[in-house]
Design a protein around this nucleic acid. Structure first.
Lengths: 329, 329
DNA sequence: CTGTTAGCGCATTCAA
DNA sequence: TTGAATGCGCTAACAG
């Protein structure tokens, strides 16, 4: 029929031959309305495909508006995602702040979403996870006075909470070295992820010549495959640094499958300290993920009250969680 | 000063002794404004603590509004949460639907949030995960014509996607029986969770006299503790049905710690088939979690277009994933 | 029971 | 460069 979603209560009032107040009444189920008129209105609503306008309703309702946080993040990692959104969602609800989540699979989508969200002024607080922005975008955010925080990666000129991924990879390398490894290899992840790229760079910085294999999908199976390739290149590998715990599990499994004892023959160290890694006994780098969420929550609460408040960035400490895939010191 | 957030551009116009159009101009950085006036306005904005009204802006902007889905769910389980929101978030973005997520830690918060969201008409689509509602709430949703779907649990009169948790527990029990278990015990979860309670009821229905212990926080450690208690009550237990994979891991570990061989002496079956369970070799019940997300996405897309569209509920099939914590048939 | 009227807070012509 | 007026779509008095 008519362009759906464009009809207003005036249209349906005319169509049903009643006043707009009556329309509003049946729409809200408030006060009593004669059955015939109510039906006429309902029918008009159906026929015209009317849809309420949130904006108009909110405006007319005179109710206080809740600030809204738009959180853009790649949802590929269940643990990361949960670790940050869980404290956030709970705390924001208590603080009366709405949370809108947008999945950002790639850079193109990041820009599309950002354009949209900013153009529509869909939020008054912005949180960008695991991504960075260019200078023009930064300028835009500033000129719009949009309070923005970065999570997982640093961004010049904006508050952020992050860890030093370069340093994390170096810690992994040094740890294996200190445990006696002579031939250390690296299992990396997809370079699209800044964090993974940073880790790989950090590793490269301390071990320029070490062999590197990529586990693109970050699965256990890919970890196994990566170790197989590494092993084919050099059977004397005695240490493997992994960009993430999951492929690290695969590395351990495959090594054992090939009769290499872990940690006697090959030592393995992961990254993240995901759930259950203690049960596996995987030595790994712990990222304080819950603190990402806590910091974000506090920053957002602060900015919700005072959008121009200065917020100090946080660089969280990494630590080695020593378990049984590496030898005791 | 004045009640912050209550100031309008009229207030700041008066305060800065200019017209509201001018205020609007400096606020939007549009067209040229004399530097002195711009500063005056900026100052007024600061002093009055003015905050833009999303609703008014959207209304004035005349732009089309995106429908919004409010998703209420308990965020306690990372895997469940991720499995359903991930496909949803991606698909909704593509469909031009915004996703607002609300953490629902308990029933009280559920009602508070529902009251708020409905009162504020903060969304035009509603998704309720892992929860049910009473008749009065159902009537309210219907009278508001709020399209609502239920995920994880069935709700009479509304479309839902779910599995049969009663049946799942029975499958677990029967599976162990078929593998020769004579004395089967149950490790349950917190009764606040409908799904866990349903599973426990299902188990009870087939094994009225079996011992039951609860792992309240659903951790590996609690699984261990639960088995310890079970073991103290009856050393001849030869099968353990678990409400969830995580405590199941604890059960396996503790059993082995106590020199019970798994699966020779004690067989264990979990529930969920969470990530990495294949590596652990845990026999478990698989819930098709990604399908929860897919079904939800489709249902929401449908309802976004036609709010009154009839949507068929889905009851997804459970399956036993046989691994090495149970004996071969 | 129902229609008329007046805003809600802002962006935007249109004049000045 | 600026201000007054208009309208966005809806709710809520206020009359009838």
């Amino acid at each position: 029929m008519t362009d759906p979603g464009k009809a207003t209560i005036y249209d349906i009032a005319r169509h049903a031959k009643v006043g707009i107040a009556t329309v509003s009444r049946v729409l809200n189920g408030s006060s009593r309305v004669a059955e015939p008129t109510r039906l006429a209105v309902r029918r008009a609503v159906e026929e015209l495909g009317w849809r309420p306008s949130r904006a108009a309703r909110r405006l007319a309702a005179r109710g206080a508006e809740r600030p809204r946080l738009a959180a853009l993040m790649p949802l590929f990692s269940a643990t990361f995602y949960h670790a940050v959104t869980s404290p956030l969602a709970g705390g924001l609800a208590a603080a009366g702040i709405d949370l809108a989540i947008y999945d950002v699979p790639d850079r193109e989508m990041k820009n599309r979403l950002l354009d949209r969200v900013l153009a529509e002024r869909a939020c008054e607080l912005l949180m960008l996870c695991s991504m960075r922005i260019g200078p023009e975008r930064a300028a835009q955010l500033r000129s719009l006075a949009m309070p923005t925080i970065f999570v997982d990666l640093q961004q010049d000129g904006f508050p952020s909470v992050s860890v030093d991924n370069h340093e994390g990879a170096k810690m992994q390398y040094r740890f294996l070295r200190a445990r006696g490894c002579k031939r250390i290899a690296y299992v990396g992840g997809p370079a699209e992820a800044h964090a993974y790229r940073d880790r790989e760079e950090g590793f490269r910085a301390v071990a320029p010549d070490a062999p590197i294999e990529i586990a693109a999908a970050m699965t256990v199976a890919e970890g196994r495959a990566a170790f197989s390739r590494l092993f084919a290149r050099d059977k004397r590998i005695d240490g493997v640094v992994c960009v993430n715990d999951v492929p690290a599990i695969g590395v351990v499994e495959e090594a054992r499958m090939r009769k290499r004892r872990v940690p006697q023959d090959v030592q393995v160290i992961g990254y993240d300290d995901q759930p259950l890694m203690d049960v596996f006994g995987l030595t790994t780098i712990r990222q304080p993920l819950p603190e990402f969420g806590d910091w974000s929550l506090n920053a957002i609460r602060r900015l919700a009250v005072e959008p121009t408040a200065p917020v100090a960035s946080a660089r969280l400490a990494l630590s080695v969680i020593e378990r049984t895939t590496t030898r005791p010191a």
